[in-house]
Lab assay of single mutants.
Amino acid sequence: MSGIALSRLAQERKAWRKDHPFGFVAVPTKNPDGTMNLMNWECAIPGKKGTPWEGGLFKLRMLFKDDYPSSPPKCKFEPPLFHPNVYPSGTVCLSILEEDKDWRPAITIKQILLGIQELLNEPNIQDPAQAEAYTIYCQNRVEYEKRVRAQAKKFAPS
């Protein structure tokens, strides 16, 4: 494992614990031996107030490669969400998460999670990743928002 990646992720964890947006979660997972795995984080993004996503808490896994922060983490909703920019596998399609697009090593975990929260309610229809959600979003916004509200209710924190 890269010392650069681990040191950056340790800084990220410290900064997150000191200050993070209300309702968001970002925690490194534990290895079988109980030690912390900084390369694999369990996160959760709350649906934004005043949107059909409100009330939901959407679980996301963030996986970092050894060359982080040169390369972005892979962000994957578990379980996958109904959304035009979420692949059926759950992987998020967002330009700041793509090395050859808008990724920059200075982007923080907090910025990534806030960017994904923004994307939930403002899909990028130029870059669809899920045919069904994309089609319904474009053709029947009322039905799309109904499905999103049902999903938010399903993923409401207990």
Rank of each mutant, 00 (worst) to 15 (best):
residue 55 G to C: 12
residue 75 C to R: 04
residue 103 W to L: 02
residue 94 L to V: 15
residue 24 F to V: 06
residue 136 I to A: 11
residue 108 T to I: 15
residue 74 K to R: 14
residue 89 S to W: 09
residue 79 P to I: 15
residue 11 Q to W: 11
residue 28 P to A: 10
residue 33 D to S: 02
residue 97 L to G: 06
residue 32 P to L: 14
residue 22 F to D: 06
residue 93 C to Y: 02
residue 72 P to M: 00
residue 47 G to Q: 06
residue 120 L to E: 02
residue 149 R to F: 09
residue 26 A to C: 08
residue 82 F to I: 04
residue 86 V to E: 00
residue 151 Q to F: 05
residue 115 G to R: 00
residue 70 S to C: 13
residue 107 I to N: 14
residue 52 P to W: 11
residue 143 E to V: 10
residue 83 H to L: 03
residue 11 Q to H: 12
residue 123 P to F: 02
residue 150 A to R: 12
residue 137 Y to F: 09
residue 109 I to S: 04
residue 128 P to M: 03
residue 90 G to F: 02
residue 30 K to H: 09
residue 140 N to T: 02
residue 83 H to E: 00
residue 144 Y to K: 02
residue 12 E to I: 02
residue 100 D to G: 13
residue 61 R to D: 11
residue 53 W to G: 00
residue 153 K to E: 14
residue 63 L to N: 11
residue 47 G to W: 08
residue 107 I to G: 12
residue 81 L to G: 04
residue 98 E to I: 15
residue 56 G to K: 06
residue 28 P to K: 06
residue 39 M to F: 13
residue 144 Y to H: 03
residue 39 M to Q: 02
residue 78 E to H: 12
residue 18 K to T: 07
residue 46 P to W: 02
residue 138 C to K: 13
residue 77 F to A: 00
residue 35 T to E: 00
residue 71 S to Y: 10
residue 28 P to T: 01
residue 18 K to L: 04
residue 132 E to H: 09
residue 118 E to W: 08
residue 107 I to F: 11
residue 95 S to D: 01
residue 96 I to G: 06
residue 132 E to I: 06
residue 49 K to M: 09
residue 31 N to K: 11
residue 3 G to H: 08
residue 88 P to L: 14
residue 85 N to P: 02
residue 103 W to T: 03
residue 115 G to V: 00
residue 103 W to D: 01
residue 80 P to N: 13
residue 108 T to M: 14
residue 58 F to C: 05
residue 65 K to D: 05
residue 93 C to L: 04
residue 9 L to Y: 13
residue 134 Y to A: 10
residue 9 L to M: 05
residue 71 S to P: 07
residue 110 K to I: 07
residue 139 Q to L: 11
residue 98 E to A: 15
residue 93 C to N: 03
residue 78 E to L: 10
residue 89 S to N: 06
residue 22 F to A: 05
residue 125 I to Q: 07
residue 134 Y to I: 07
residue 20 H to V: 00
residue 75 C to V: 15
residue 86 V to A: 08
residue 7 S to V: 11
residue 51 T to F: 05
residue 25 V to A: 10
residue 67 D to Y: 06
residue 123 P to G: 00
residue 121 N to I: 10
residue 132 E to N: 08
residue 127 D to Y: 12
residue 80 P to A: 14
residue 76 K to E: 15
residue 11 Q to A: 15
residue 45 I to G: 04
residue 116 I to F: 07
residue 82 F to T: 05
residue 95 S to M: 01
residue 109 I to K: 00
residue 33 D to Y: 03
residue 129 A to Y: 06
residue 110 K to F: 04
residue 62 M to A: 09
residue 2 S to C: 15
residue 146 K to V: 13
residue 38 L to V: 09
residue 126 Q to T: 14
residue 151 Q to Y: 08
residue 17 R to K: 10
residue 39 M to G: 09
residue 29 T to V: 07
residue 60 L to I: 13
residue 96 I to V: 14
residue 68 Y to G: 02
residue 133 A to H: 05
residue 85 N to D: 01
residue 119 L to H: 07
residue 156 A to S: 10
residue 54 E to L: 04
residue 66 D to K: 09
residue 10 A to M: 15
residue 25 V to Q: 12
residue 5 A to I: 15
residue 111 Q to C: 15
residue 56 G to V: 00
residue 84 P to Q: 01
residue 116 I to C: 15
residue 146 K to I: 11
residue 118 E to D: 13
residue 104 R to F: 02
residue 87 Y to E: 04
residue 74 K to E: 15
residue 130 Q to S: 09
residue 56 G to A: 05
residue 19 D to Q: 01
residue 126 Q to K: 12
residue 70 S to P: 05
residue 90 G to V: 00
residue 54 E to I: 08
residue 4 I to S: 04
residue 38 L to F: 10
residue 104 R to Q: 04
residue 44 A to Q: 01
residue 137 Y to A: 01
residue 20 H to G: 01
residue 12 E to K: 03
residue 78 E to G: 13
residue 16 W to C: 07
residue 57 L to M: 09
residue 102 D to S: 14
residue 81 L to A: 06
residue 106 A to S: 14
residue 63 L to F: 13
residue 100 D to Y: 14
residue 53 W to A: 01
residue 9 L to F: 00
residue 137 Y to Q: 06
residue 142 V to G: 13
residue 92 V to L: 14
residue 15 A to Q: 14
residue 5 A to V: 13
residue 108 T to F: 15
residue 158 S to K: 08
residue 33 D to W: 07
residue 58 F to E: 05
residue 31 N to C: 11
residue 54 E to R: 06
residue 31 N to R: 09
residue 120 L to P: 02
residue 112 I to W: 04
residue 37 N to G: 12
residue 41 W to I: 04
residue 85 N to H: 01
residue 65 K to I: 14
residue 101 K to F: 11
residue 97 L to M: 12
residue 95 S to G: 02
residue 113 L to E: 02
residue 33 D to C: 05
residue 124 N to G: 07
residue 22 F to L: 05
residue 133 A to Q: 03
residue 145 E to I: 09
residue 14 K to Q: 04
residue 124 N to P: 04
residue 94 L to K: 01
residue 74 K to Q: 14
residue 147 R to V: 11
residue 152 A to P: 01
residue 98 E to L: 10
residue 157 P to I: 05
residue 131 A to W: 01
residue 63 L to V: 14
residue 155 F to E: 02
residue 76 K to S: 15
residue 133 A to N: 01
residue 123 P to A: 06
residue 113 L to M: 11
residue 4 I to A: 12
residue 36 M to T: 00
residue 31 N to W: 10
residue 14 K to F: 07
residue 98 E to P: 11
